[in-house]
Design a protein around this nucleic acid. Structure first.
Lengths: 139, 139
DNA sequence: ACACAAAGTATCATACATTGATACAAAAAC
DNA sequence: GTTTTTGTATCAATGTATGATACTTTGTGT
């Protein structure tokens, strides 16, 4: 769980934690069934309040990526059936394409060349699709 | 200026306006020297407060993309020398690649296939790099 | 000159979101 | 059955986003 957060970032700490864990799951670094650190431990590691971590875990639980339970020996872990990739709908695909568009526009205005931007995009796609889990491609 | 905002979105209206205008500039829909609508008009069109638009304009001015001046017949316009694309530094390229990574991870978890995601990314890159301005590629 | 109109700007208030301090509840370990 | 380890709930403090309203600047018309 190599995860760092910046208190100065414009992005809320909660979202940074959620994003970091999502990326770890998507990239195969965290696999279904893996335990997440207890909220107090991760909060201490990151230097934030335990509630902030707890809220991130609950957001992930709401997304179906994490399961949590109270009590000693219980805790939070990556949901085991999160492999069951669902079909993506049109709305989702439009949202993803919009996300790529945002980054592409940003890259253009920041003076990043087409070649560099395309290489970065393909490298990241490879990183998340190439490595982990089954070859469960779907539309 | 086909621009819409959603008051329900988690993204602040200011950022939606800034992003929309940035994309319009990056995509060539708005060109250097082009006038932006007066803050009151755009505010009325979008159904938001005029201050929200004014703040978006000032954020864009701070980024060097827009120039503003008070008084009848003046107003806001796309900065004329925003063509002068600057070299991108390492930090910028890392930020862009991180942005692509975020979207790629999201796509994977949302069940979008590699092929669909790659096509979307390349389509958007083409949209912003293929169309507008000079062929001023740089690193 | 003078008044008016059209543009951005400043000030203040309010609602909401983010984060944290602290206390609570549940379940396993001993 | 007590203790310990887990997540949860409640409340306060701070900051950010948005809006209402008034102000300033500059061109236009007479």
């Amino acid at each position: 769980m190599m995860l760092v957060v910046s208190l100065e970032s414009k992005e809320p700490v909660i979202d940074q934690i959620v994003g970091g864990i999502r990326r770890a799951i998507a990239g195969g670094e965290l696999r279904p069934g893996d335990e997440l650190p207890p909220v107090r431990q991760l909060a201490a590691d990151l230097g934030v309040n335990l509630n902030t971590v707890a809220r991130a875990y609950r957001a992930l639980e709401g997304a179906g990526l994490v399961s949590t339970a109270r009590g000693r020996g219980r805790g939070s872990r990556v949901t085991s059936d999160c492999e069951l990739v669902h079909e993506s709908d049109d709305e989702t695909r439009e949202r993803i394409e919009g996300g790529f568009g945002d980054v592409a526009a940003d890259a253009k205005l920041a003076g990043v060349s087409f070649e560099v931007a395309r290489a970065a995009a393909l490298r990241q796609l490879q990183r998340f699709y190439g490595a982990a889990s089954g070859k469960g491609g779907n539309a």
